[in-house]
Structure formats: structure tokens, C-alpha cells
Measured scan of single mutants.
Amino acid sequence: MAAGGDHGSPDSYRSPLASRYASPEMCFVFSDRYKFRTWRQLWLWLAEAEQTLGLPITDEQIQEMKSNLENIDFKMAAEEEKRLRHDVMAHVHTFGHCCPKAAGIIHLGATSCYVGDNTDLIILRNALDLLLPKLARVISRLADFAKERASLPTLGFTHFQPAQLTTVGKRCCLWIQDLCMDLQNLKRVRDDLRFRGVKGTTGTQASFLQLFEGDDHKVEQLDKMVTEKAGFKRAFIITGQTYTRKVDIEVLSVLASLGASVHKICTDIRLLANLKEMEEPFEKQQIGSSAMPYKRNPMRSERCCSLARHLMTLVMDPLQTASVQWFERTLDDSANRRICLAEAFLTADTILNTLQNISEGLVVYPKVIERRIRQELPFMATENIIMAMVKAGGSRQDCHEKIRVLSQQAASVVKQEGGDNDLIERIQVDAYFSPIHSQLDHLLDPSSFTGRASQQVQRFLEEEVYPLLKPYESVMKVKAELCL
């Protein structure tokens, strides 16, 4: 049975990233139509530049190519590739079939990587351009969430054990800070992308030097003109047959890092959902379990974690691919890159769409948070109580021993009897502590235990987050809708 299948058929496997999760716009960027249309555009740009620099290419040939950029006979191309065992030459023939007058000058002087690699770089750039505003929107939604809850005390956790208090907004800023680093890295790697350009079979530009009869300047002009037509500021000066596969490492490393950030955020949300302090959106008709109707599973956060793990592992592909590119190139890269580049971007696209949807509907339960604080705060307040007693004339050592005994009794009630923490009640009825009984409410005010959390939130948002989001103001209103 021949390899390949009808990918629109229910009898043929289709990647869930495309069929179930990723956005239509990201799927289109990695589609065959987008790819092969870009090949034709690159052939047109090459012909236009070659004509401008004096090669015998007519206006009629150029116009014929322009008129057929979208006229792609995919069936013919597939048949040609089956016959020739070469995808680029299959599309040269297919393009030439609908451009008979231009057929002889299509791909003039070029090698397969002229269309293959340059198209990949265009796709990487455009895919990054799709991700950047999506990530900015996630940051914006979380920034709104953090600002609104900047002063809401909550129990902090280290080692997932109760620690000092923080605020809900401050905790959210930990998430935002990681995503801001990801946004900066995505922008950097996007701006650092260079075009492969017009380089020939081993990167020496020998074929173009021959076409222009040894004119170095025209060869350099050709490279520059096509690079500018493709919208790049610069091209690699040095290439082998391909652009260095280190570029793929750079791009997928940034995406993998984004995956790590999203995994951490969504894990926190899942843990908070278990504590009943916070939940992701839950639709009115949504079913959490087929057997347990009360369940409210954090399905979206779980999906993000599941896909983020996949995204983090994909960076190993370009690392290994770059390491086995012998001399000017081997074909070890080809099949692998067809999979890992598309999957990385479709996965990143999915987790950003999902995280935006989550961040637009996060639900906080202040009463649950308050109750958990009441359970733990008495123990945390013991040092403040000791200091207040010393100020009232008591002995630190005597007070410490009193607190120690009462704390152990209260802990026994919590752990052995399943009761509430009654340390404060014990202190309130103990005559030894009568000098500070009137101060206990103040000493137990949760806001006095959150330090500068709310001020940190305000400063972080104003100095770091809002300036970073400013270039994306025009796209901030787009909502994230999930079908599944």
C-alpha cells in the first residue's frame, strides 16, 4: 500500500493539533497551500530580480507567473513527485505547466533550498508574528487579574506546605514575570531571523556568478533584492546548502521555554482548584465526569500541561538535527523538520489560546482563602504575639514557653481530632496574655502579614508589564474561544 493518505478522510490519521486544537490561522501558515504558494512567490521574486539585473526574462513571463501564483494543481504535483521522487522539481514542473512561456526560467540558477529553506524562514517569521500578540493578550488578562487582587491576602506555599502570606495578585505576578520573559525572547528570536537568500547549491553562489558572467556586484544585488522582497532586513552571508540548523534550535528553545512557563502556571491553577481557592472557567453544560456528576475538573489547565510537556520535548529534535548536518548538509534534517517545526508552533498556539481562555474567566473564592488563612495564621502570628507581650512588660522566655504549650495543644486538636485551630481562643482565655487581649485582632490582621506584596504588584505592572504590552494595544480586544 502506498504511503500517505487522504487526510480529510475519517479513515486516515490526522494530527489532533490540526484537527482538534490549533487555530485556523496557525494551521494555514503550515498548510501545503501556504507552503507551495510561497515557493511560487519566491520563484517570481527571483525572476523579477534577475530581470532587473539584466537576464533575458520578459515582462510577459513575469506576468504569467504572477497570474498563476494561486493556480496550484495539487493532484498534478503529487503525481509528479511520485514520478520524480523530488518535491521541488515536482512543483517546478507543475508551475511550468500553467506558465508555459515562463517554464524555462522558473528556478533559474537556484537549488531546492532556495524555495525550501527560504519558505521555512518566512513561515517561522509569520508563525512567530501570530504567537506574539496571543502571548501579549494572556499577559494582559493576567495583569488585569493581578491588579484587581493585588491586596487580597492568601496563604503562600513553599514545598506545598503553608508559608508566609502573600497576595493573590502577587502570586499571579510570578506567572506574568515568566511570560514577559517569554514574550521578550519570542520577539528577540523573531527579529534575529535572517533570510537564507540566493546562495546556490553549497552556499557559494557559483551558479549565479556564472549567470551574471562573473559580476560579483550583481550577485550581491540579486541576494539583497530577493531578501528585501521577502520582507527581511538581512540575509546570511555564510550558508551551506541550507541555512544553519542552529536557527531551528533557537526558535524551538524559546517555544519550549514558553511551554515550561505555561505548565507551571496551569499546575498552580490545578492545585488551587483542589484547594477550592480558584477555578478555571466551567461552562453551564460542561460535564466533569461521566460517573461523578459533582466533579469540576480543571480540564483546560490539564490540557495545557499535557501539550506543554510535548512542546518542551520537541527542542531535542533540532538539537540532534543540527549535530548531524555533515559538511554542507545531509538530508537527516528533512523529514524531522517537516514534523517538529509545525508541531512546535501548533502546540504553542494551542496552549496560548487555551491559557487566554482560562485567564479571561478565572474565578476566585475569597471566603475559602480566608478560612485557610484562619487555619494557619495563628501559628504564624506567634512571633508577633511574643513581641507584643514583651512590649507590655512580659518575659520573652516565659511567653515563648506559654505559646509553645498552647500551640501544641491547638495542633493536637487540628491533627488528632480534625478540629479547627483554636490557638487564639486559648490565648484569649489565658490570664497571662490579658495585657494584649485587646491587640489580638490587630495582630491577626492578614494584611499585616503580606509585606509589600501589593506595592510590588503595582510597581511591576507599571514599570515592566504595561510598557512591554504597549506595541500590542491594537490587538488586545480579541477574545479566545474554545470549541473543545
Rank of each mutant, 00 (worst) to 15 (best):
S151C: 11
L377K: 03
F449M: 07
H263N: 15
N185T: 09
P471C: 14
Y466M: 15
G4F: 15
D192I: 07
L131K: 06
N421R: 07
I373F: 03
A308D: 00
E48M: 09
L55S: 04
R125S: 09
E328G: 04
R296K: 07
L84Q: 14
S207P: 07
Q416G: 11
S67C: 12
G361W: 07
L440P: 01
W175R: 01
K402W: 00
S9P: 10
D216L: 07
R452N: 10
K170V: 00
G231T: 02
T166P: 05
L42C: 11
S407R: 03
L469M: 09
L209P: 04
F327R: 01
K367A: 14
R141W: 14
L69E: 08
N68W: 07
D6P: 06
R459H: 09
Q210C: 06
G96M: 11
L183V: 13
A322T: 11
L331G: 03
D430W: 05
S301P: 04
N71H: 12
A110P: 08
N297E: 01
H400A: 01
G394A: 13
W39R: 00
L271I: 13
D73F: 09
L314Y: 14
E401C: 06
E213L: 14
D215F: 12
F160T: 01
E417A: 08
M380I: 09
P10R: 14
R270E: 06
V465D: 02
D215C: 15
H217F: 11
M389G: 06
L44A: 09
E50T: 08
S15I: 15
K218Q: 10
T154K: 01
T119L: 08
T166H: 06
D445L: 12
D215Q: 14
L128N: 13
D178E: 14
D441M: 07
S23M: 04
F232C: 01
K295T: 04
G200C: 01
Q456F: 04
F379A: 04
R190C: 09
T111A: 00
A256P: 03
S112G: 04
D32H: 15
I265S: 11
H91Q: 15
F236V: 07
P467W: 15
M380Y: 05
R309W: 05
L135G: 09
E220R: 09
S454A: 12
K246Q: 02
K233M: 10
R137G: 15
V390S: 06
P133C: 13
T202Y: 01
R171F: 03
A431Q: 13
R338P: 00
L484A: 15
R270K: 00
F460P: 01
M76F: 07
E80I: 15
E213Y: 06
D129Q: 11
E473S: 14
S359A: 07
T201V: 07
A235Y: 15
G5K: 15
I176W: 01
H7F: 13
Y114K: 00
F212A: 06
A322K: 06
S301E: 02
H217K: 14
K229H: 05
M65E: 01
K276G: 07
